[in-house]
Each structure stands twice: as structure tokens, then as C-alpha cells.
Design a protein around this nucleic acid. Structure first.
Length: 111
DNA sequence: CCTTTGACTTTAT
DNA sequence: TATAAAGCCAAAG
């Protein structure tokens, strides 16, 4: 029998990302901190590389500045922006304007 | 086993 | 205040 994978950090990232409510966004660092690795924000983004096979709304995950840093990984550049705008998030170019309104911190909401 | 990377964050100049 | 560089940690090569 073949062992499919051995999820650990990646799996946690997926789980938290799935918990992001509709019309809300969060930062990589926030998720990383929730996982116990506050300084592993980059790992969260890396985990998202495999999020395509998961039901992870990666489009709701942005960097701390509210910039769609990973929009290039969605296949299309306007895809991520379109998804966020479609959920009520105000996005100008690659920057979320109402970040404070849509920001969702797992450390506070799930705690 | 060692090196490089990577969708970030924070600090220093 | 803006720009530049270092730090961080874990996985893939």
C-alpha cells in the first residue's frame, strides 16, 4: 500500500485557510502564527502551492500589506482580484483598500 | 545530507 | 518617510 502523503504544516494551513469566512481575508503571518510558527509566513505561502488539489480558498490569503502577492499562482492575474471583489472585498490593482474591514485573524476569531 | 527556494515579515540605513 | 537588506523556517531538489 502506498502512502499518499504525510501532511503536517501544509495540512494545518489548508484547514485554517478553509475556515476563512466569505468576504474575509487574512495574512500568511497570521495563519503561520496560529500554527505556532509565527516566523514561517513564507511556509504558508509555499503550502499554498499544493492548495490547488485542496478546497482551499487561497484567494482569501494575502500578505500583511493586503497586497495580492500570490495572484500569479492562480493561473490568471485578474482571477484572484475578481474573486475577492466578487466577495465584497475592495481591491485596487493588487492592493486591498478596505483591508481593515475584511481582515480576518484566526488568532482572534478562532481563539 | 546539504543547498536552494519561497504566494513573508521585520528591522536597519 | 522610503528603500534596502537580513531573518526566518520548513519542504523540495
Amino acid at each position: 500500500m502506498t502512502k499518499i502523503e504525510e501532511p503536517s504544516f501544509f495540512d494545518k494551513v489548508y484547514q485554517v485557510a478553509k475556515l476563512i469566512p466569505y468576504g474575509r481575508v487574512t495574512s500568511y503571518g497570521a495563519i503561520a502564527k496560529y500554527l505556532g510558527a509565527a516566523r514561517s509566513a513564507r511556509m504558508v505561502g509555499w503550502a499554498m502551492n499544493g492548495s490547488h488539489q485542496q478546497d482551499v480558498p487561497a484567494h482569501r490569503v494575502v500578505n500583511r500589506a493586503g497586497v495580492l502577492s500570490g495572484k500569479h499562482h492562480f493561473g490568471q492575474e485578474n482571477l484572484m482580484k475578481d474573486l475577492l471583489v466578487s466577495e465584497g472585498v475592495k481591491v485596487e490593482g493588487d492592493q486591498i483598500t478596505n483591508l481593515k474591514e475584511v481582515y480576518w485573524d484566526p488568532n482572534e476569531q478562532l481563539l
